[in-house]
Write a protein that binds this DNA or RNA. Structure first.
Lengths: 194, 194
DNA sequence: CAATTGACATACGGTGCGTATGTTTCTATT
DNA sequence: AATAGAAACATACGCACCGTATGTCAATTG
């Protein structure tokens, strides 16, 4: 069956995003060459600027893809947990563990904010942040949490989890740091409980 | 009085750092031109590569300077507070407010980690982080806090404060977001209390 | 079946970093 | 005190890279 034009274009976009994911993760955004990137995908820079506008646009597409994957994982995990409060804790732990992935760290947590600006302004709206806020809102509505601003709480929880992940990743012994971080995270989160 | 050789060099270093602070804050690290930077300081790129090695070295020097200023402010503020727990809260609030400075945000919080890597690994060791950890350690020793890993707790607290600041700065109405963030921060921190 | 548009490739210009090479001023040694 | 050496910076060069402008070929449309 002959692929249609739209299918062809989606394929080149996918190839470019995949190559960019690899290059951005390995070399970082600044040191990733668009020539090498596109050549690795069997294309040229022409395809890039046609599909994504510029280098930032490609990074945005990559970040979107990763972010969607993270959000999907987070919701999938949380859906198996009974109890909203446990779900929030598990979600936070999941976020910490996902943020241990070097690809996530480099692209989403380091270069992403530096190049694209505040994650909250991204079209994906930083999926994990969004799901966290929704959980917090439900918990407040059900009376489990003190009356705190949901967005602020979600922001701080995610910030705490993010820094926990960065700390663990840079740690000499991640296996030792992880439980400490999870423990501290649950303690902090318990401050929101009534 | 004739300035000595070392004094002259310190002066050029100071001039370069000052010019870099302005350029990095206004244009961001990537878009800051070394030629313009040094010309604004009345020098050339030669002085730069002699004193700081490369562009990253200059950013590191700038980050160090700002970080030291922040740590000095934080300790100065905390020293006037009686009670370690109140000091910790005030310190966190001070950190949030300092992080509202666009210069701090852009250079220390965005470009710094992206270019230089994890702040914990910086020579300044991210001053605020260090002072926070010390306060947490004292509070644990005095029995005010649950037995949590001090480094982990300091990391998460600072991460929460940092994201609070980023949220406020990107908010439509910072004046409204600030008290919400401070409230959420204090709630989270109270989770560490016995 | 012409004409036009879309999807990409190729070619070009400009900018900016890092380094290699000068140049001048201070220092040190005899 | 004179010269050798180095330090501090300026100048000059090469290279890589991004963005755009232009070209090309296939597909679609009337």
């Amino acid at each position: 069956m002959a692929r249609s034009r739209a299918e062809m274009m989606q394929e080149t976009r996918a190839k470019l995003i995949a190559a960019a994911r690899k290059a951005f993760a390995e070399k970082g955004y600044a040191d990733a060459s668009m020539d090498e990137l596109t050549a690795a995908a069997g294309l040229t820079r022409g395809a890039l600027y046609h599909n994504f506008g510029d280098k930032r646009g490609l990074l945005a597409a990559v970040v979107n893809q990763i972010d969607e994957e993270m959000a999907a994982k987070a919701t999938a995990i949380a859906s198996h947990i009974e109890g909203e409060w446990q779900a929030l804790l598990v979600q936070g732990s999941a976020y910490i563990e996902m943020a241990l992935d070097p690809e996530v760290q480099r692209i989403v947590l380091r270069d992403g904010p530096a190049v694209l600006g505040d994650p909250q302004q991204w079209p994906s709206q930083s999926g994990c942040l969004h799901t966290t806020q929704e959980t917090v809102e439900r918990l407040i509505a059900e009376g489990f949490l003190k009356p705190v601003d949901p967005e602020a709480a979600a922001r701080l929880l995610n910030g705490a989890a993010l820094n926990a992940a960065l700390w663990i990743a840079a740690s000499d012994d991640p296996g030792e740091a992880l439980p400490k971080a999870l423990d501290a995270f649950q303690l902090l989160a318990s401050g929101l409980l009534k």
